[in-house]
């Protein structure tokens, strides 16, 4: 028999020194911000109106509507899921709220019709989100499928409600939420600011935020550390639903009418904002800060293309290319992290 032996540890290898400048790491961190700045400069030069106060306000208000939903979408994507139904839910909530307010008569609510519409819109968003979350967790259906179904279900419900016709005729108190301002700052932008700040604090400084990251980072490990994974999953769909309802209300106030086709294809730009902002589609990595930059980038891009008289059809192509590139980069960066 041979002599006894143990596994031989090799001489300790020197730890790999990080090489000076890593372009991928740099781009992962600052690439989007850099691109945003470049875009602003380019559009500013090519069309003088781009940087006017009026246009900038316009962009920010536009960004606010879907930026609010993007905050919730960040939570969803952080858990490794996705919500494709947000655009439909947004329209559904807005139309339902507007329908009640206009049909019951604004006078019935002592001039507080907007509050009723806001509550109904958010409640509908919350409820649909809860249904999505429960379906995902109870029946183990992928979020992609559940919310793809939800996308057409809620759009159909919206169209049914008023035969596809828009509802208009809001009072000034209602419209203020979309067109008013406080000290020159549009109301939707203020709402976004509050929502984004809350999202940032929750994700960064609370137990619940840690749980969201944990569930997305490693669901099995999360379960084994005592986290109620299904409850966390349901909660993020509730959050994104609630915010979609809120955004729907704001959009209807801004347009002065609740449209059954409002928010069509919003899910794409919302998901794009999150992914461009560096939140990984695999879950567990990312945050609100990046999402806000991503949302701004898309807002600037869409607005800039309009200013340059580029066909709106072309915008769709740009959006698609950007989202694929962002995900490709995310996958590439993840693979590199894995190798290191």
């Amino acid at each position: 028999m041979t002599t006894a032996a143990t596994t031989t540890p090799l001489a300790t290898q020197p730890p790999k020194k990080p090489r000076g400048f890593d372009i991928v790491q740099f781009l992962e961190k600052y690439g989007v911000l850099l691109f945003l700045i470049v875009l602003c400069v380019a559009f500013g030069i090519s069309s003088p109106n781009f940087l006017s106060v009026r246009n900038v306000t316009n962009i920010l208000t536009e960004v606010s509507i879907y930026g609010i939903v993007a905050v919730g979408m960040t939570c969803v994507i952080l858990t490794g899921g996705v919500d494709l139904a947000v655009g439909s839910v947004l329209a559904f909530g807005a139309l339902a709220g507007a329908w009640v307010v206009t049909n019951v008569g604004a006078g019935a609510f002592f001039g507080m019709g907007f509050l009723v519409a806001l509550i109904i819109s958010c409640a509908i968003g919350t409820l649909t989100g809860y249904l999505h979350g429960k379906t995902i967790t109870l029946f183990n259906v992928p979020p992609f499928i559940v919310t793809l179904g939800g996308m057409t279900i809620w759009r159909g419900a919206t169209l049914l409600m008023n035969d596809g016709a828009p509802i208009a005729g809001f009072d000034a108190g209602y419209r203020w939420w979309g067109r008013g301002d406080v000290l020159g700052i549009p109301v939707p932008v203020l709402v976004l600011f509050v929502v984004a700040a809350a999202g940032y604090v929750v994700l960064r400084y609370t137990r619940y935020g840690r749980q969201i990251y944990a569930v997305g980072g490693n669901p099995e490990a999360a379960r084994l550390t005592g986290i109620n994974v299904p409850r966390v999953l349901v909660s993020v769909y509730v959050i994104v639903g609630f915010l979609a309802g809120l955004a729907g209300f704001l959009l209807s106030a801004r347009l002065g009418s609740a449209e059954a086709i409002a928010g069509t294809s919003y899910e794409l730009r919302i998901i794009a904002s999150v992914v461009i902002g560096g939140t990984s589609l695999f879950g567990g990595m990312g945050g609100i800060g990046g999402t806000m930059i991503g949302a701004l980038l898309i807002g600037v891009l869409l607005n800039g293309l309009v200013m340059m008289n580029v066909s709106p059809y072309f915008q769709q192509i740009v959006m698609g290319v950007i989202i694929v590139l962002a995900v490709a980069f995310d996958t590439y960066a993840k693979m590199r992290r894995g190798k290191r």
Binding site: G217, N218, A222, M285
Partner: peptide, 9 residues
């Protein structure tokens, strides 16, 4: 790795 760590965290 699979059940314990949240590797990127």
């Amino acid at each position: 790795k699979q059940q314990g760590c949240f590797l990127p965290h």
